[in-house]
């Protein structure tokens, strides 16, 4: 980060190139470029209805990817978030159907999300068990628990007021899109300008150096996971309220889509680097690709493979770029 700024200060033209070549700019270009190319092939892709459906239906992935990005920047990983979103959606829906005040149903998802993730954070940070083991275990606990408690029964007859996703702000801006933008901007500002936000980068970059600077490593990790739980709760609400039913199952491979968004958004898996602006753009790009497949007559069954290739390419590019910078 600092090295980049210094190099930029020395050679101004190169700095402008850097900005253009940043992950966020590349993603924004990709999002627009893809829309144009697919639009030329099939103009129906560019219909306002389709584009807004793509954004609406996938805003929850971007919201969850903000939390995931923090987790990865802090040098950890979480593969339980997809299962958690399924559980939180079910909790919230069950409460709403059984006559709890709607606000309580909404808050329950947020609180439960924070509790589950903070618990994982404590196990990871204080008991020093690798995040992959803890979250893999939690994934199966949540997934198995959800199906055995609900039997996979769908929740229907949700009260109309429950549907957050239906709200439109200023007459035109759908709430999920608004929340996606708001969460991204707030998180980006917080991570860039506040001490506690910067601590996430410090811990992920070098745990030892962070400790010497007086940053509590375990406390930062628990904070990151608790926030991640909060975003997962918000994502679960968007997910639960966009359809008229809640399926009471774990959305298959949702965690992979969320991780893909974070990684493709430029969050380095080696920790310490990345922004949530990138992850939100990447979430939009991935949703756009999934939609584009249909419009260019490619079976949507290929979307998972596309995601795999995207992660692979970004990760390899990230590592090669770092190596070149270290070598230069």
């Amino acid at each position: 980060m600092t090295a980049e700024t210094l190099a930029g200060a020395e050679a101004d033209p190169r700095r402008r190139l850097r900005v253009l070549a940043s992950q966020e700019a590349l993603l924004a270009i990709a999002v627009i470029g893809l829309a144009i190319v697919v639009g030329l092939y099939n103009p129906r892709f560019l219909a306002a209805r389709n584009l807004s459906d793509v954004l609406l239906g996938n805003a929850y992935i971007a919201v969850a990817a903000v939390g995931m990005s923090m987790v990865i920047i802090s040098g950890n990983i979480d593969i339980s978030v997809g299962a958690l979103i399924g559980v939180l959606a079910t909790i919230s829906g069950t409460l709403a159907v059984n006559g709890a005040p709607i606000v309580v149903a909404w808050l329950a998802a947020l609180v439960a999300g924070v509790v589950v993730m903070a618990l994982q954070g404590v196990i990871i940070a204080y008991l020093r068990i690798p995040a992959i083991v803890v979250t893999l275990g939690m994934l199966s606990v949540l997934k198995g628990g959800l199906i055995s408690v609900t039997g996979g029964k769908w929740i229907t007859d949700l009260p109309d007021s429950f549907h957050l996703a239906d709200i439109e702000l200023f007459g035109a801006l759908p709430f999920p899109v608004f929340l996606m933008i708001l969460v991204t901007i707030l998180a980006a500002l917080w991570m860039r300008y506040s001490a506690s936000g910067r601590a996430i980068y410090a811990v992920g970059g070098s745990a030892e150096a962070a400790r010497l600077c007086g940053i509590s490593h375990p406390r930062t990790i628990v904070m990151v996971f608790a926030l991640h739980g909060l975003f997962a709760g918000a994502a679960a609400l968007l997910y639960a309220t966009q359809l008229r039913v809640i399926q009471s199952t774990v959305p298959p491979n949702l965690e992979l889509t969320i991780i893909t968004a974070s990684v493709v958004g430029g969050v380095s898996i080696l920790g310490g680097v990345g922004t949530v602006v990138g992850s939100t753009l990447a979430a939009v790009l991935i949703a756009e690709i999934a939609s584009a497949l249909v419009f260019i007559d490619v079976s949507p069954y290929w979307i998972r493979a596309v995601q795999g290739v995207l992660i692979l390419v970004t990760v390899i590019a990230d590592i090669l770029r770092r190596r070149r910078m270290a070598g230069a």
């Binding site: 990983i77 992959i132 992979l256 893909t260 998972r304 493979a305 795999g308 290739v309």
Partner: peptide
């Protein structure tokens, strides 16, 4: 390339399953 095994195999977890889904339809 020195990609950490965890991330490499998460990527191929998606890729290989995606190929299976894509090929089998």
């Amino acid at each position: 390339v020195k990609v950490p095994p965890l991330i490499m195999t998460i990527a191929t977890l998606a890729l290989y399953r995606g190929l299976a889904e894509g090929i089998s339809q």
